[in-house]
Amino acid sequence: ERLAYIADHLGFSWTELARELDFTEEQIHQIRIENPNSLQDQSHALLKYWLERDGKHATDTNLVECLTKINRMDIVHLME
């Protein structure tokens, strides 16, 4: 799945992406607590919560915009 692929590449950027996707610091902290050992797991959790929260509004376009804002064009190019 594309989101899994994106999550695998996010690394430390997942928190920046979370902020761009309008997650609160508290929500970010919660994701860290729930997935303490792996940045990859934290990234996967973030994208899963985003899909659950935004439903049909959780679009590739939205994700590309946010990834561009945090200067992760490498991931944007991987999505093309």
Rank of each mutant, 00 (worst) to 15 (best):
His57Arg: 09
Asn35Trp: 10
Leu51Gly: 05
Ala45Leu: 12
Glu65Pro: 13
Asn35Asp: 03
Gly55Gln: 13
Ile75Thr: 03
Asp54His: 13
Thr61Ala: 07
Cys66Trp: 09
Gly55Arg: 05
Glu34Gln: 15
Leu39Cys: 11
Ala58Arg: 08
Phe12Glu: 04
Phe23Trp: 02
His9Ser: 02
Thr59Phe: 05
Ser43Tyr: 02
Thr61Gly: 12
Arg53Met: 06
Leu39Pro: 12
Leu17Ser: 00
Leu46Met: 15
Asp22Lys: 09
Lys69Ala: 12
Thr61Arg: 06
Glu34Met: 04
Leu39Gly: 06
Asn35Arg: 11
Leu47Gly: 02
His77Tyr: 07
Ala58Gly: 11
Ala58Cys: 11
Ser13Leu: 03
Ala7Lys: 10
Tyr49Asn: 09
Asp60Ala: 08
Glu34His: 10
Ile28Asp: 00
Asn35Thr: 08
Thr68Met: 07
Leu39Tyr: 15
Asp60Trp: 08
Phe12Trp: 12
Leu67Gln: 00
Gln27Glu: 13
Gln42Leu: 03
Leu67Pro: 00
Tyr49Gly: 14
Ser13Lys: 04
Lys56Phe: 11
Asn62Ile: 05
Leu10Lys: 00
Leu17Val: 07
Leu46Glu: 00
Glu65Gln: 12
Leu21Lys: 02
Val64Tyr: 10
Lys69His: 13
Gln40Leu: 05
Val64Phe: 08
Arg72Ala: 04
Leu47Asp: 00
Ile70Gln: 02
Val76Asn: 03
Asp54Cys: 05
Thr59Ile: 03
Leu39His: 05
Met73Gly: 05
Thr24Gly: 12
Ser43Gly: 07
Pro36Val: 05
Thr24Arg: 11
Val76Gly: 04
Leu3Lys: 04
Leu3Ile: 14
Leu21Tyr: 00
Ile33Gly: 10
Asp8Glu: 08
Phe23Ile: 14
Glu52Asn: 12
Asn62Leu: 12
Asn35Met: 11
Leu67Ser: 01
Ile31Leu: 09
Met73Glu: 15
Gln27Pro: 01
Asp74Asn: 01
Asn37Ala: 14
His57Phe: 06
Leu47Trp: 03
Gln30Val: 08
Ile6Asn: 01
Leu3Arg: 08
Ala58Thr: 07
Cys66Gln: 11
Leu39Gln: 06
Ser13Cys: 03
Glu34Lys: 10
Asp54Tyr: 13
Trp14Gly: 00
Lys48Leu: 13
His29Asn: 06
Thr15Gly: 10
Arg19Pro: 04
Ala45Arg: 12
Phe12Ile: 13
Leu3Ala: 05
Tyr5Cys: 15
Leu67Tyr: 01
Glu34Ala: 10
His29Cys: 08
Asn71Ile: 00
Arg19Ser: 07
Arg53Val: 08
Trp50Arg: 04
Gly11Lys: 09
Ile6Val: 06
Thr24Asn: 12
Glu65Phe: 04
Leu47Arg: 01
Asp60Lys: 07
Gly11Arg: 08
Lys48Ala: 09
Cys66Lys: 13
Glu52Gly: 05
Trp50Leu: 13
Ala18Met: 01
Val76Tyr: 04
Lys48Pro: 00
Thr68His: 15
Asp54Thr: 13
Lys48Phe: 09
Glu25Ile: 13
Arg72Gln: 05
Glu20Met: 15
Leu51Gln: 15
Leu3Glu: 03
Phe23Val: 05
Asp8Ser: 14
Ala58Leu: 14
Ala58Lys: 04
Met73Leu: 14
His9Gly: 11
Arg32Phe: 07
Thr24Tyr: 14
Glu34Val: 11
Trp14Thr: 02
Arg2Ser: 13
Thr61Lys: 03
Asn71Leu: 04
Thr68Ile: 06
Asp22Gln: 13
Val76Met: 07
Asn37Leu: 08
Ser38Cys: 09
Glu16Asp: 14
Ala45Asp: 15
Arg32Thr: 06
Gln30Thr: 11
Ile75Glu: 11
Ile70Lys: 01
Met73Ala: 15
Ile28Asn: 03
Ile70Val: 10
Asn71Pro: 05
Lys69Gln: 12
Arg32Ala: 07
Asp54Asn: 11
Ala58Pro: 13
Glu52His: 07
Glu20Arg: 09
Tyr49Val: 15
Met73Pro: 05
Glu16Ile: 14
Leu10Tyr: 02
Asn37Thr: 07
Leu67Cys: 05
His44Val: 15
Glu52Asp: 04
Asp74Leu: 00
Leu63Trp: 04
Glu25Thr: 09
Leu63Ile: 15
Asp8Asn: 03
